[in-house]
């Protein structure tokens, strides 16, 4: 199986879907001549031409709304936001437009579009460029929210997102773009709404998405030395959430830790806690713990920034606490 970077897997997914369906097109800042701010769209302009790979003005509201209208008229746009921080400028078109069009038109107008780009923190990008906004999008009925953590998932999930008839918010990770992994060639799709057990275990369930999956896996590997067998699950799609896979795991391990980079208050993990306590209450042997980003704007200073986000040590501590070993 070929080994490639996460960004290359995304590129392959877009290339294959654009070859497969002429209605699919890509627009966004720097996606064409510059080959993408993070080189995810490398070569697409050369292959598909300026009619299908469009460099836009810095006008997120305008070009995202244009994509919503184009989708209503039968096209299948992929909107690249340079980072999800800038998607806030387009939020009205996504929340008031894309997410609600089907409902308020009585089922007449679906909006098959993908809004994609990197989210989360990177390296000292400071407050306005380092945030995890997935909880905002997860809150809205009508949207699907996908966050791949590996190159293979990136390809399989993006292909499914592009084929989905609903608006899909597809949040990548700036720091995972260079990550390498095996990626199946050609037709390879992963259905939206299906979690994956990334590491089977029996003692505790650790739920983590996007780059926090790798923090959770590191913690799980270190815990093994301490005799703790953690099961690590990546929901991959946050909405719709694969609650069944999460519940089955928690019913087996009786303990759960949820890791996310985003803020704690009203975060994705809070929703998962709600589901688990409602549907697996009798199986729980300890309160569910969450490891999250600090409840502050992201600081620039390297040391402070490191303190603001979950790391393996903090995940380990939480796991040991739900096992009453710490």
């Amino acid at each position: 199986m070929p080994v490639m970077q996460y960004r290359e897997a995304l590129n392959q997914a877009m290339r294959e879907e654009m070859q497969r369906d002429e209605r699919v097109f890509l627009l966004g800042e720097e996606v064409g001549a510059y080959n993408g701010a993070y080189k995810v769209s490398r070569g697409l302009l050369a292959e598909f031409g300026p009619q299908r790979v469009l460099d836009t003005p810095i006008a997120e509201l305008g070009f995202t709304g244009l994509a919503v209208g184009a989708a209503m008229a039968g096209l299948r746009p992929i909107v690249e936001v340079m980072t999800f921080n800038f998607s806030i400028l387009a939020l009205d078109q996504v929340v008031n437009g894309a997410a609600k069009m089907l409902y308020m038109s009585g089922g007449q107008f679906g909006v098959p579009m993908v809004l994609r780009g990197p989210g989360g923190s990177a390296h000292q990008l400071a407050a306005q460029h380092s945030q995890s906004l997935e909880a905002w999008y997860c809150h809205v009925p009508g949207l699907k929210v996908v966050m791949p953590s590996t190159p293979a998932d990136a390809k399989g999930l993006l292909k499914s997102a592009i084929r989905d008839d609903n608006p899909v918010v597809f949040i990548e990770s700036e720091v995972l773009y260079g990550m390498k992994g095996e990626v199946p060639e050609g037709e390879y799709t992963i259905p939206l709404g299906v979690a994956e057990i990334k590491r089977p275990g029996k003692d505790v369930t650790v739920i983590a998405h996007s780059k926090m999956l790798h923090v959770a896996l590191q913690a799980a590997n270190e815990l093994e030395a301490e005799g703790v067998d953690a099961e690590v699950i990546d929901p991959r799609t946050l909405r719709p959430l694969d609650t069944e896979t999460l519940l089955q795991s928690v019913k087996k391990t009786n303990r759960a830790v949820i890791v996310e980079e985003g803020w704690s208050f009203c975060g994705v993990g809070a929703q998962i806690v709600d589901i688990l306590q409602q549907q697996a209450f009798d199986y729980l042997d300890a309160p569910i713990l969450r490891v999250t980003g600090a409840d502050v704007p992201t600081p620039y200073n390297k040391t402070l920034e490191h303190m603001a986000f979950p790391d393996a040590q903090r995940v380990k501590q939480a796991v040991l606490r739900v096992l009453y070993k710490a």
Partner: peptide
């Protein structure tokens, strides 16, 4: 008839989008 939109000005980008689709197709 592509809507009835109730956020002031928010349907102008949509109109650019349907027009874009005409050009594209």
């Amino acid at each position: 008839f592509y809507g009835g939109h109730a956020i002031v000005g928010a349907h102008l980008p949509l109109a650019a989008g349907t027009a874009f689709a005409s050009r594209y197709l």
